[in-house]
Design a protein around this nucleic acid. Structure first.
Length: 164
DNA sequence: GCCAACGTTGGC
DNA sequence: GCCAACGTTGGC
């Protein structure tokens, strides 16, 4: 186990990194900036949920705008609360309602994320595709997965591309 | 708005 | 447990 020093924390040397998708019409990086932190509710896919359950507080997150023109990474966030039950599953008025969810078995979980920064320019999917260093990103191979792991190398590469 | 990819459901 | 039908995601 590598030690978590101040310097390697800053570089995310030993942290799991993630990419999380949101439709900007529903919840954008600007919405997160305004709220500072937000629950990441509405994930209704088991694999995506399982990745959220693996997240630690402080893990870096690429905030991705899906179903956008163009789609791409819009900025950075970090996990600020461990996975806990997504109460919207039990809310009959919510678009994310799931009648199978109970208090004992909530089925769906979410983490909270905290705003870090908004890129001046969105890094479009097309731009990311042109980067040889990013060719193995899950984003390109498992295009429907809304919460996915990113390697620290991929994360740092994207941060450097988005640096202002 | 279309549709490919792919995850989920349910009959058998 | 298979797999056809169906629903959803998300790029285009």
């Amino acid at each position: 186990m590598p030690k978590r020093t101040r310097s390697n924390l800053a570089l995310n040397m030993d942290r799991a990194c993630w990419l999380m998708k949101s439709e900007p019409d529903v919840f954008s990086i600007d919405d997160l900036k305004a709220k500072k932190t937000s629950p990441w509710d509405g994930v209704r896919n088991y694999q995506a949920r399982n990745f959220m359950k693996q997240m630690a507080v402080g893990d870096p997150v690429l905030f991705y705008h899906s179903n956008a023109k163009p789609p791409g990474v819009a900025g950075l966030a970090r996990v600020c609360k461990l996975a806990y039950p997504d109460h919207t599953a039990r809310d009959k008025t919510s678009p994310y309602h799931d009648e199978r969810a109970t208090e004992e078995k909530p089925i769906w979980e979410m983490v909270d994320v905290e705003f870090i920064e908004r890129f001046n320019e969105l890094l479009s999917l097309d731009t990311l595709r042109q980067e040889p260093a990013l060719k193995d990103m899950v984003l390109f191979n498992r295009s429907r997965l809304s919460v996915q792991p990113v390697t620290p190398e991929q994360y740092r590469h994207i941060v450097s591309m988005g640096a202002t």
